[in-house]
Write a protein that binds this DNA or RNA. Structure first.
Lengths: 210, 210
DNA sequence: GTCGTTATTGACTAATTGGTCAAATAGATT
DNA sequence: AATCTATTTGACCAATTAGTCAATAACGAC
C-alpha cells in the first residue's frame, strides 16, 4: 500500500467530503458522466479544493475505488481471521461479499462499477482466495480442475451474487436462501461433497458487518 | 423486436459507418467518455448525420448494445437448434459465449461493458437458458437448488469466462482447457454427475462461428 | 497577539461538447 | 432534362467543463 501521508485535520475533512460526495454520485452514473462541479457542490467545498487533493478526475475515481475495495478486503480478512479450514474460508468470503451487498448496496454498486468487467485483476476477494484454493486442492478437499479455474469460478459467482442482491434487494429470508443455494451449487462445483456443502451453506448465517 | 423499417441504401451505409465507429471507440472507453465528434470523425460522416440517425448519444449506445446482444443470442439459438437435451443446451450456451469471446474480443468487450454490472436483466443467454434449466430440473437432471439459483449461477460463470478470455487471450489449447474445466465445475455444481459433466466438457470442441 | 505555513476559495479562461439548421447534394420519378 | 424528396453537410451556437491562480482564511508555534 502507498504510505499514508499524515494529513492535517482540515485537509482530511475536505478530502473526506469530496470522497463521500463522489460515492453518492458514482452510485447512479459512471465517473465520466459526473462533472467536477457536481462533486464539489455536493461536497460543499470550492472547486479549487478538488485539484488540491486529486490530480484529475481519474485519480479521484481511483481513490474511491481503492477505498471500497480495501473496505471489503478488510472485512473478509477479519472474518476469516480465526478459521483454518480453507473450504470454510472460501465460503466465508462469499458470505461477506453477499452480506456487504445486502447492507451496503450503494457502496457495492460503486465497487462493481469500478471493477468494470474485470475478474482476475484486483478483486477484493482475490488476495486470500488464491492461496485458500491452492491449499484446499492440496489437501484433497477440491477437485483438481479447481486449481487453475477455481479462482475465476468463485470470483465470477461472488460478483454475480453481489450484482443480484443489489438489484433484487431481497428480504432477509430470501437473502439467506439465495446465499445458501449459491453456496451449495458453488461448493459442489469445486468438488466439496454434497453433504459437507449443504452443512456449510446451512451454517452461514448472515454475517454482521461492523 | 422493433419493426425493421426499410432503409434507403445511402442511409443504411451512413448508419452502419456510425455504428462501426462507435464499436471501435466503445472497446476502449465508456460511452460517456466518447464525444460525438470522435464518432463522426471515425465514421467519416458529418456531425449532422449522427442526429439524423440517433436521437442522442444514449440512443446510439443502446443501438450498439442491442446489436451485439442480438448477435450472440442468434448464435446461441442457432447452435442449440437441433439439440434436445437441456443439459447439453446449457453447456452449449457457455461454449458459444466463450468462443465468441475468443474470436470477437472487441465485440465481447463492448457487450460486457454495455451490460454494466447487470446479470439477470437482458443477457444474451438469458432467454433460452431459463427454460432449459427448468426443464432439466424437472427431468431430475439438476439438483433442486438450481431451479431458483441456477440462472444466476450460470450467467455469472459465462460472464466470468468471457471476461477472462478477452483479458488473457489464451491460445487455442489454453482456451480448450479453460472451457473444459469451467464446464466441469459448473455442471457439477448444477448437479450433473461427474462422469457426465466430464464427458460433455470433453466433447465441447471450440464451436465455429459464422 | 504576531508571524509563517498550509489549505480553501471562487472568479476566470480556454477548450470542449451536444445539438441545430439552412444550404447543398444525391437519387429517384416523370 | 426537370422536378421532387430524402439525406448529408459543416458552420454555428449556447452551454458545459476541466483546470488555473491570486487573494483569503484557517491553523499552529512562539
Amino acid at each position: 500500500m502507498a504510505s499514508q501521508t499524515e494529513l492535517s485535520p482540515r485537509s482530511a475533512r475536505t478530502r473526506a467530503a469530496l470522497i463521500a460526495a463522489g460515492f453518492e454520485l458514482l452510485v447512479e452514473r459512471p465517473i465520466d458522466a459526473i462533472p467536477i462541479d457536481d462533486v464539489v457542490a455536493k461536497a460543499g467545498v470550492a472547486k479549487g479544493s478538488f485539484f488540491n487533493h486529486f490530480a484529475d478526475k481519474q485519480a479521484f475515481a481511483n481513490a474511491i475505488a481503492t477505498e471500497v475495495r480495501l473496505e471489503v478486503e478488510t472485512l473478509v480478512t477479519r472474518a476469516n481471521a480465526g478459521i483454518e479450514d480453507p473450504v470454510e474460508r472460501i465460503a466465508g468470503g462469499m458470505r461477506i461479499a453477499a452480506t456487504f451487498a445486502l447492507t451496503q448496496p450503494k457502496r457495492t454498486a460503486v465497487l462493481l462499477r469500478s471493477q468494470g468487467s474485470s475478474t482476475a485483476r484486483r478483486h477484493p476477494l482475490n488476495s486470500g482466495l488464491r492461496v485458500d484454493i491452492e491449499a484446499a486442492v492440496e489437501q484433497g478437499l477440491l477437485r483438481h480442475e479447481a486449481r487453475e479455474s477455481g479462482l475465476l469460478y468463485w470470483l465470477g459467482l461472488c460478483q454475480a451474487v453481489m450484482t443480484n442482491i443489489i438489484e433484487v434487494k431481497p428480504s432477509k429470508e430470501a437473502f439467506r436462501k439465495r446465499l445458501a443455494e449459491i453456496l451449495i451449487l458453488g461448493l459442489t462445483g469445486l468438488g466439496v461433497p454434497e453433504a459437507r456443502a449443504a452443512q456449510i451453506a446451512k451454517d452461514m448465517a448472515p454475517a454482521k458487518l461492523s
